[in-house]
Structure formats: structure tokens, C-alpha cells
Amino acid sequence: MISMRDKNLGTIRKLFLAIGGSAMVLNMYLIFMWVPTEKNLGIIQRIFYLHVPTAWVAFIAFFLVLIGSTGYLIKKSKLWDRLALASAEVGVLFTTVLIVTGVMWAKPVWGVWWNWDPRLTTSLILWLIYLAYLMLRSYAPSPEQGAKYAAILGIVGFLDVPIVYFSIKWWRTLHPQAVIGPGSTGELDSSMRLLLLISTAIFTILFVHLLTTRMSLRKMEERLEEANHIVS
């Protein structure tokens, strides 16, 4: 039985998708037509408005994995587990986009596809950790144990990331420094800054949409598993 509450949530999600979808189209227009071209880096710099919001969303996603994992270990409620699983999947997706856009940007600007700069390396290790997280779930003996083990990996993995970052930081940093936010140098032109904030907001809407959709899908999967269990 699909409850009234689920139905309402579904309607809200559809509305959200409509708003987010149109906003994303607008975002693409702003990125490729409206914003002025950066004078040193040229046209390729426009990928910046996709790259940085993606990094932001990936970070939020992995932070939510930590929250969901901790919540699950304390409360043992499936809601927390769904949150952790959905944000891990979306996080891996966005980290993949992050790395791909980064590589595309690096080649024309740095002359190499990849260098082992702290941020690049940390992103790659992060990606590997959460890939293992998803693997662990499918290799676990039972869904409950999978959820529990994954929660442990979700906690350890997130705590590990700052240590990984600082341990790689010895090496020279080619990656551009933060230009917005606390401790930034603030060299960004005002229209570029505005667009970065808009784009980040729109990507966050996309993230929330993907996250909630995946969570409700997971809920259905759980129901199906239970039904199969009763039949067999």
C-alpha cells in the first residue's frame, strides 16, 4: 500500500524537479552565454561553474553519509540507512563528474591531464573509499549487516579524509586556491561570483532531488524484499 504521505511526497518531488530542471536550463544559459570570458584562462574557464558546485555537492553528500551512518548505528532505523546509501550513491556520481570536469580543465590550463596535487589525489581517494562503500553493501551476508558495516565504513571514511588531505599537502599545490568563502582571496569578478553562487544553489537543488528520489526508491526496494521474504 502506498500511503497518502508518500503520495504527497511524490507530488512535492515532481514540483521540485520542474523547478530545478528549468533552473538548470537557465544556469546553462548563464554559464555559456551570459557570464564574461575570463581573460587569462579563456573559454575553458567556464567549466569552473560546473566544477566547483559539483565539489560542493559531493562534500555535502559524503557529510550526509556520515550523519546517516551515525544515526543508523545509534537508532538502527532504516530511514538513516536510506539517507546514508542514497547520499553515498549520489556522492560517488558527483565525485565522478568532479574528476572528469577537473581533468578536462587541467589539460588546456596546466598542460597535463592529471597531477598528484593534494586536492586531486584526495578526490580520487575519496572516490575509491565510497566505491568500496557501495561494494561492501552488495557483498555483505545480509542487508542488515550490510547496512551496519557500511555505516562503519561511512564514519571511518569521512574521518579519514582530512588526514589524507593534510598528508598529501607536502607536495606543491598547483590547484587554484579558494576564491570564494572564508579565507578566500576574493579576486573573482562580481558577475562571476554571482553566477558561482547561483550555480551552486541550482546544483544543490539537483542533489536534493536525486537524494530524495533514491531514498524513496530504496524504500520500495525494502518493501519488495520484505514481500519476497513473506512469499518464500
Binding site: M135, L153, V156, D160, V164, S167
Partner: peptide, 9 residues
Amino acid sequence: VMFLPIVMP
């Protein structure tokens, strides 16, 4: 697969 990325530091 789980342990090596974590033990990287």
C-alpha cells in the same frame, strides 16, 4: 578494497 584507501595516510 576497503582498507587500502583508508590506510593511505
